[in-house]
């Protein structure tokens, strides 16, 4: 039989855990339930704590209002930006991890990569906007993919550098002795070994693009090319209390991210804290 004092401690512990979970999960609960309520239940001075009658009306309305279009725009942009960054980032990371460059070019490059990760995106938005305009790709998903390289490329280089350095050098040396070319070594020895790291990096990069707001706002003008965050922002600023639909969009926009993040649980710290910002 545990002592009363220990029992009291356990009770406090569980109370604190409960508080922490309410704080964390209540807004998410509110989003989910509001999306299932009739307007009469949320647009009221006394909103109901849980929907008394569940409705999917808001989701149907989203379907009719081109939700799929915004969703696909986001998927395409995030995927394309990630593929480009992953390819260039992997090659660069390999070069930086395995070779020495003259004049400390490699260190200089890494220092710059690190700095870029910290520059607020708005700081270089004007020259980027002008460049994309001159290239004729402003207000298009292609332009956004190019713009997103500012975020994703430094991120991929930095993350993959760590993963490439984890690959034991002996395998590559053995391949070289067997007469494999450098390209061959890279593609058939290093690439498979970095595979899991590559996948984790890709997932984080997709999440980053999926949630990105600033450049999407600045570089996209026509609703036809909007990504989800911009679509949500226009909802927030234009319609004050169309919350049923807004929360529905929010939930649908979050599901893929929560799903993807399930795959990278063990990389969360490395992916978010060390490389993200």
């Amino acid at each position: 039989m545990p002592s009363p004092r220990r029992l009291g401690r356990r009770a406090v512990l569980y109370l604190l855990v409960a508080l922490a979970m309410v704080w964390t999960l209540f807004p998410i609960y509110w989003m989910v339930t509001t999306s299932l309520k009739l307007p009469i239940e949320y647009a009221s001075p006394e909103p109901s704590w849980a929907p008394t009658r569940i409705t999917f009306e808001h989701y149907r309305s989203l379907w009719e209002h081109r939700f799929l279009r915004y969703f696909l725009n986001t998927v395409i942009t995030a995927a394309a930006a990630t593929v480009v960054s992953l390819l260039c980032g992997f090659l660069a990371a390999y070069a930086l991890a395995r070779f020495r460059f003259p004049a400390k070019l490699d260190n200089l490059f890494l220092l710059w990569v690190l700095l870029v990760k910290m520059i607020p995106p708005i700081v270089i938005a004007i020259p980027l906007y002008v460049t994309l305009r001159q290239l004729g790709i402003i207000n298009s998903l292609l332009g956004l993919v190019v713009g997103y390289q500012v975020y994703t490329l430094p991120y991929c280089v930095w993350m993959l550098l760590g993963f490439v350095r984890d690959v034991p050098l002996e395998m590559e040396e053995a391949a070289a002795i067997d007469g494999a070319s450098r390209w061959r070594t890279l593609w058939s020895i290093v690439l498979p070994l970095v595979g899991p790291g590559l996948a984790a990096t890709a997932i984080f990069s997709v999440i980053m693009c999926w949630n990105e707001f600033t450049y999407a706002l600045l570089f996209l003008r026509s609703p036809a090319v909007f990504t989800l965050p911009i679509h949500i922002a226009s909802y927030i600023t234009e319609y004050e209390v169309l919350w049923g639909e807004l929360m529905g969009i929010g939930l649908l926009a979050s599901l893929p991210i929560l799903f993807l993040s399930g795959y990278v649980q063990k990389y969360l710290l490395r992916g978010f804290a060390m490389g993200f910002k």
């Binding site: 989003m31 949630n211 949500i232 922002a233 927030i236 929360m247 969009i249």
Partner: peptide
């Protein structure tokens, strides 16, 4: 996404 957070 920060926009989802802002919406809620």
């Amino acid at each position: 996404s920060t926009m989802v957070v802002c919406a809620v």
